[in-house]
Simulated assay, not measured.
Amino acid sequence: MRYSIHDFVQLIARLRDPVNGCPWDIKQNYTSMIACLKEETYEVIEAIEQHNTENLKEELGDLLLQVVFLSQLATEDHHFTFDEVVQAVAEKIVRRHPHVFGNTQANNEEEALQNWNAMKALEHQHQGHTSLLDNIPHAFPALMRAEKLQKRCSKVGFDWTDVSPVFAKVEEELQEVKQEIARSPQDPAKIEEEIGDLFFATVNLSRHLKCSAEESLRKANQKFEQRFRRVEAKLGAQNRTLAEASLEEMDRLWDDVKREEKHR
């Protein structure tokens, strides 16, 4: 059987039927679906990064399921329907691309982005935002939100014009962490605050160097994981476990792994 998007919306509605639906689906609400939404989003990202188009097709379907399911909850609560979600985003796409659907010109990517941002700014005015930062979601990952805050402020000139003072700020915040540890070793709240300032300054450095802080850290995590797994494999080849190895031995194996990477 070939299913259309209309058929799919009806399938989800049937899952939510209070009499004949699925007990698990009936029990869900907006909040309980957040974890599923996050998980499916990250699985889409992983499929893209792995260049696995077959897996991407499946994961996009799972992500679509979240959108339709949440729309079904809203339909039941008489807020909006899935059709209205589609209508709203279609109108937004048309509105924010006047160089495609209107009379405005965009001769390159930069001009197209300027048109998008100009229309977005008008929308924010109509929505009654009182601050430049009003619509940056607090649910973003912390590194991503820091970058968004900084970029938004940069658009109105609240930013350094070169990277030198950014380096100085990172060094300043690192020193403040050290000072706070020496001054208040038993006050984790103050130390945490200084660590947060250091992270924020580091995100700013990443942004000035045209790197995504979120992506940079994700890649660093991946590199660490790959190296540590190879340390485990080297110990396994010796019929030994991590618990049987000293820190010095693991450090030596770690250095071996790094040297092997350089000679590839």
Rank of each mutant, 00 (worst) to 15 (best):
R95P: 02
N135R: 08
E46T: 13
D25H: 11
L15S: 02
K258Y: 10
L11S: 03
V203N: 04
R145Y: 03
A243G: 15
V231L: 13
N108K: 08
W254R: 11
Y30P: 02
E180I: 02
A201Y: 02
L205P: 15
A106W: 05
L205M: 13
C22S: 11
E109S: 08
V44A: 09
N55L: 15
H78F: 13
D197H: 06
H263N: 09
A106E: 06
S212G: 04
D162E: 06
K169R: 12
L133Q: 10
V163I: 14
A74I: 03
Q72S: 13
V177C: 07
E180C: 15
E173W: 13
S32T: 15
N117W: 13
T241R: 11
R259H: 06
A237W: 11
A121G: 03
H126L: 09
A118W: 01
E171K: 04
H78E: 14
L70K: 07
N115A: 11
A121E: 15
T53N: 07
W116F: 15
E214H: 12
L198G: 03
L217H: 05
H126I: 01
E171C: 01
E91P: 00
Q50T: 13
A121S: 14
H99S: 01
F140P: 00
D255F: 07
L15E: 07
E261F: 03
A189L: 10
S216E: 14
V257K: 04
R207V: 00
P98K: 00
P185N: 08
F200Q: 12
E49L: 15
V19K: 12
T75V: 01
L143E: 11
L122D: 12
A237G: 14
S32L: 12
S212L: 02
A220Q: 06
L205I: 09
P23R: 09
L70W: 01
M1P: 14
E110M: 04
R152K: 14
R229H: 03
E225W: 07
F167C: 01
P165C: 00
E244T: 03
L73S: 03
S4L: 04
K178Q: 10
G128V: 05
D25W: 12
A220M: 10
K38A: 11
V166S: 03
V67Y: 12
Q10A: 14
L217A: 00
K169I: 01
L253Q: 14
T130C: 03
P185S: 10
L37K: 02
H138E: 13
H129A: 10
R145D: 04
Q186Y: 06
R96S: 02
P165V: 00
L149T: 05
N204E: 15
Q127Y: 04
Q50I: 04
R183G: 00
T31M: 10
A168N: 08
F101Q: 00
A220H: 06
